[in-house]
Design a protein around this nucleic acid. Structure first.
Length: 377
DNA sequence: TTGGCACGCA
């Protein structure tokens, strides 16, 4: 929701100037808030709502008891001390120890401290020490992610071992651990984690292999991913996901390899699908390789691959960037309805952006009106 | 488990 509001705010600002757009933005974002009020239950979205100034929604959808408990806890966590000091401080705090804990409250607490691993870990240990409370697997996963993001790799590994003792490690946990290792420049540790999957009671199969390969490719270790894949492929068969992960990886630095892989996919009986083509098209548009992009679109048509909304979004964006306004509009107004691909928020935003960029403010406003009346909200 | 969005900030 916040994205829609911000984007529309920007578009409106461009269209009608700051003073008028403020009123429109307020009105529009409030209608968005109402439309999305039923979705406002996660901590992330709630905090966005507060920042936007719509505190009444927050209060409406929070458990009032939970909120006050959360407020007390946050206020009682000392700043700038070790995780153990946080734990000790909370243990000796009467107000905290009379709070009724719930998994929702603990999740919100961890979310609040997502950028402060000492507070997160201290508060997590305190909650876990309460006799009537047992941590959920989700809370463990959140803490794993926080520690990894803050580059506390040893603490993250220790927590993983602790989870393993309680049989709480899932593929989701391992995925977070591998991503955080790779993000910290320790891709070998990510591979090691995959190798040790069996010790967590998990299987090395196509799904878990894809997770590892995706992690490596997203960290620009495509060549390493490729070598690992060549070793694994005799035991684990690849699928369309596997190939598209590599397509994405090579798209960031090597179109030659992308074309090689397209041929390989065909040869291996795993032909390129709409995800494959969308990935490549996006990448070509970003590097302004428009001629290549049109060839790719032709290739997709020849392959009989059915376009979907995300593909059209990418195509509209590409046409817009190449200056083909009429062609982009044609896709939006004719091709998408014809093929039954429903426009989503991004589709509208792209079209509005193209008109704004070409000085056609009134047309952009008309599209915005359509969006409010019959759009994807 | 594959294709995502936008913003502001440093």
């Amino acid at each position: 929701m916040t994205f829609v509001v911000q984007k529309c705010a920007k578009n409106l600002h461009n269209l009608v100037g700051p003073s008028i757009s403020c009123a429109l933005i307020l009105d529009f974002s409030q209608s968005c808030s109402r439309a999305f009020s039923s979705c406002l239950s996660s901590p992330l979205e709630s905090s966005h709502v507060i920042r936007s100034g719509y505190t009444h929604h927050e209060q409406q959808f929070e458990d009032s008891e939970g909120l006050s408990g959360l407020d007390i806890l946050i206020a009682r966590v000392p700043i700038g001390v070790s995780d153990n000091e946080v734990l000790q401080s909370l243990l000796h705090d009467q107000a905290c120890n009379s709070i009724q804990l719930s998994s929702e409250l603990v999740n919100k607490l961890l979310h609040k401290f997502k950028d402060d691993w000492k507070s997160a870990l201290g508060a997590f240990r305190w909650a876990g020490s309460r006799s009537s409370y047992k941590h959920t697997p989700e809370a463990y996963d959140m803490l794993v992610d926080i520690l990894g993001r803050m580059k506390q790799m040893d603490k993250m590994k220790a927590l993983l071992e602790e989870m393993n003792q309680y049989h709480l490690v899932t593929l989701n946990t391992v995925a977070k651990v591998m991503r955080r290792f790779a993000g910290a420049g320790k891709w070998e540790d990510a591979v090691r984690t995959f190798d040790e999957l069996g010790t967590f009671g998990l299987e090395k199969n196509t799904e878990s292999m894809n997770l590892l390969l995706d992690t490596l490719c997203k960290e620009n270790k495509v060549q390493q991913a490729r070598e690992i894949f060549l070793e694994l492929k005799s035991h684990i068969s690849p699928d369309a996901y596997t190939f598209n992960i590599f397509i994405h990886g090579w798209c960031k630095n090597n179109f030659g390899k992308v074309y090689e892989l397209l041929d390989e996919m065909q040869a291996q009986g795993c032909p390129p699908n709409v995800v494959t083509f969308t990935t490549i098209l996006c990448s070509m548009a970003k590097s302004e390789e428009f001629e290549e992009a049109w060839h790719l679109v032709d290739r997709m048509k020849l392959a009989g691959c059915k376009p979907d909304t995300l593909f059209y979004n990418s195509l509209i964006y590409t046409l817009g960037r190449a200056g083909y306004v009429q062609e982009a509009v044609h896709i939006f107004e004719v091709e998408m309805p014809r093929t039954g691909a429903n426009p989503n928020t991004s589709t509208y935003n792209s079209v509005i952006g193209i008109f704004c960029h070409h000085g056609q403010e009134q047309v952009a406003l008309n599209v915005l009106n359509d969006m409010e009346e019959s759009g994807p909200l």
